[in-house]
Design a protein around this nucleic acid. Structure first.
Length: 566
RNA sequence: UGGGGAGUCGUCCAACGGCAGGACGGCAGACUCUGGAUCUGCUUAUAGGGGUUCGAAUCCUCUCUCCCCAGCCA
């Protein structure tokens, strides 16, 4: 069985590659690349591409390069280069020594451009941007040929050299391919190959004042790196004829471009332009705001590389436009964290509970399981005493149907501790608000089991008031209220769909003392609440947690249904 | 009224002339010291019309719908 046959294709691209391999194409090599432009932060859509390109290389024992597509110095910065490298590494992929920049090939590209000129396949055009737009025609009408199209080879060579020498102002001239101004494909209507840009490049500095356009730079870069399969998104489909044209005219090594549908996620936006708008408009705090679909945002939110990779495997690869349900992403992170995250108890909205029959000054250390999914993770001690905090929503003075947590006269279990029965409440005289709940405990139920086999319907999490640490917890929800944030009335845009309270800061939460030892960045579960991780905003005196994702909440669903009916 | 793509459960992906399947979601139940996890069951789809064929999601044909393209961005 050949290498190719041992890999069962799981998408149409792998299927094409397997066929190419079986046909001996490209000397039976597989070499892909991930080619980001360093003009913004990577997002989950890029993760799909990274997993695809690096994943294919892994599956077919090929190689995958990291290549920065840095041909537009006006938009690109080293800050982005660094963040992209960090994110790809964090996701779990290794480009080894193969980190490249399109700007590494500027000399070669220039030489290729001169070659095209000498062969009469490119010309220097003096049309202004406005004029060029006019000459280009429209979607339904052909364009007109530029008056500069018939310049002699000698003049073109000279003019292009002078463009490079810096004799002309930005926008005054371009180098264009001589193809077909009447083509139905607008990309073929004498596309620009080089434009004049007197701008400092983050790598080549002031060496160049002309820069190649994407269509020229990309295919040439792929060719130089001897890429076999150049995988990109659907909007480049009608650029493929141009990709092929350049490489054919140049008569050089010719990779195959294959397009797939980019990722869309419900309740979020994905384009760099829109994400930049959220950041610059201060709708979020930063590129790594935990509500952002950026890899840095997801990382800060507590998403793991494993979960994101798994998500990318599950969504598949195809050519049809699609919107993946954000619930699948949440499923993937829950699945991973459920297996790996240590459990703790934390109370977000504290309600004081006094165990009236418990000795005033007594403290007990009760044993708690760190992860019921993985007993190898061991146990820990949790302090218990007379005054505790439980979650406000775990008590109802007047419990609705199907609510089986604590209420007057009812017995519940305090996790890993005791059965307690509510004997009464203390209210604030003026507001009528419940200030504390009084309970009695059953000493025979220590650890949480009743020797007489008595059952309770609910188990509550809790912390001991005297031992708890105070912490800040940040709760996040989707940034947008609609599955498609772009689905708005005429005259407004996705910003109008933003959810007002997508971030809720709980500043006085109580957490069990053991949490002080949690290492920064690692995730944990707060029992019955969700998965959380420590935010870098934490200080020595106050921990700050981000909620990664809630646990599935059956009661919330029931209650919502009840409210819907009532 | 140009060119390039795409139409399969609510969502995403399979099925490559031979019983339309999986995952997520939803619903119901079992179990449970997390109303978590786990397990079981149910739910629902080939855009439409013609044709070829013993047999069509798949091949042919006509129609419809959706997406992308008129940057000296990528």
């Amino acid at each position: 069985m050949s290498e190719a046959d041992s890999v069962r294709p799981s998408d149409f691209i792998r299927e094409i590659i397997r066929e190419d391999l079986n046909a001996g194409k490209y000397d039976s090599r597989v070499h892909t690349r991930f080619p980001p432009e360093p003009n913004g932060y990577l997002h989950i859509g890029h993760a799909k591409s990274i997993c695809l390109n690096f994943g294919i290389a892994r599956d077919f024992r090929g190689l995958c390069n990291l290549r920065f597509d840095d041909t537009n110095p006006t938009k690109e910065e080293v800050e982005y280069v660094e963040s992209i490298k960090e994110d790809v590494r964090w996701l779990g992929f290794d480009w080894e020594e193969r980190i490249y920049y399109a700007s590494d090939y500027f000399d070669q590209m220039y030489a290729y451009a001169v070659q095209l000129i000498r062969e009469g396949k490119a010309y220097v055009c003096d049309l202004s941007p406005d004029e060029m737009r006019e000459y280009r025609g429209t979607l339904t009408e052909p364009g007109k040929e530029s008056p500069y199209r018939s310049r002699s080879v000698e003049e073109n060579v000279d003019m292009f050299a002078r463009m490079r020498a810096g004799e002309f102002r930005d926008g005054s001239r371009t180098l264009r391919a001589k193809i077909d101004m009447s083509s139905g494909n607008i990309n073929m209507r004498d596309p620009v190959i080089y434009r004049i840009l007197h701008a400092e490049h983050h790598r080549t500095g002031g060496k160049w004042c002309i820069y190649p356009m994407y269509d020229f730079a990309h295919c040439v870069s792929d060719s130089i790196e001897r890429i076999t399969h150049s995988i990109c998104t659907l909007e480049f489909e009608d650029h493929r004829p141009l990709y092929d044209w350049f490489l054919r005219q140049l008569n050089v090594y010719h990779p195959q471009q294959i397009e797939f549908a980019r990722l869309n996620l419900s309740f979020t936006v994905m384009s760099k332009r829109k994400l930049l708008r959220l950041v610059e408009g201060k709708y979020v705090n930063s590129w790594d705001d935990p509500r952002m679909p950026t890899l840095s945002g997801l990382r800060r939110r507590g998403y793991t590389p494993e979960a994101i990779r798994n998500f990318c495997d599950r969504i598949g690869v195809a050519k049809r436009d699609s919107v993946v349900d954000i619930a699948l992403l949440e499923y993937c992170i829950r699945e991973h964290l459920n297996k790996t995250a240590p459990r703790f108890m934390a109370v977000l909205r504290p309600l004081k509970v006094v165990i009236t029959n418990y000795p005033d000054d007594q403290t007990e250390e009760l044993e708690a399981v760190n992860n019921p999914e993985d007993t190898a993770m061991g146990t820990r001690k949790v302090p218990f005493s007379k005054v505790l905090y439980i979650e406000q929503e775990d008590f109802r003075e007047d419990p609705p149907k199907q609510f089986y947590r604590l209420s007057p006269g009812r017995e519940v279990r305090l996790r890993y501790a005791y059965y307690v029965t509510c004997t009464g409440v203390v209210k604030d005289d003026s507001t009528g608000q419940i200030k504390e709940v009084h309970c009695t405990y059953d000493p025979a139920t220590r650890g949480g089991d009743s020797p007489d086999g008595r059952k309770v319907k609910a188990t509550l999490h809790w912390v001991s008031a005297a031992h708890a640490l105070e912490a800040e917890v940040r709760l996040y929800e989707n940034l947008f209220m609609k599955p498609d944030p772009e689905d708005t009335e005429a005259g407004s845009d996705f910003i109008s769909c933003m959810k007002p309270n997508s971030l809720e800061i709980m500043s006085s939460c109580y957490i069990e003392p053991e949490l002080a030892g949690l290492r920064p960045g690692s995730g944990c579960q707060f029992e019955r609440l969700g998965y959380f991780c420590i935010d870098p905003d934490s200080t020595d005196i106050k921990l700050v947690f981000n909620r990664t994702v809630t646990l599935k909440d059956t009661w919330a669903k029931i209650e919502k249904g009840q409210k819907g009916k009532g």
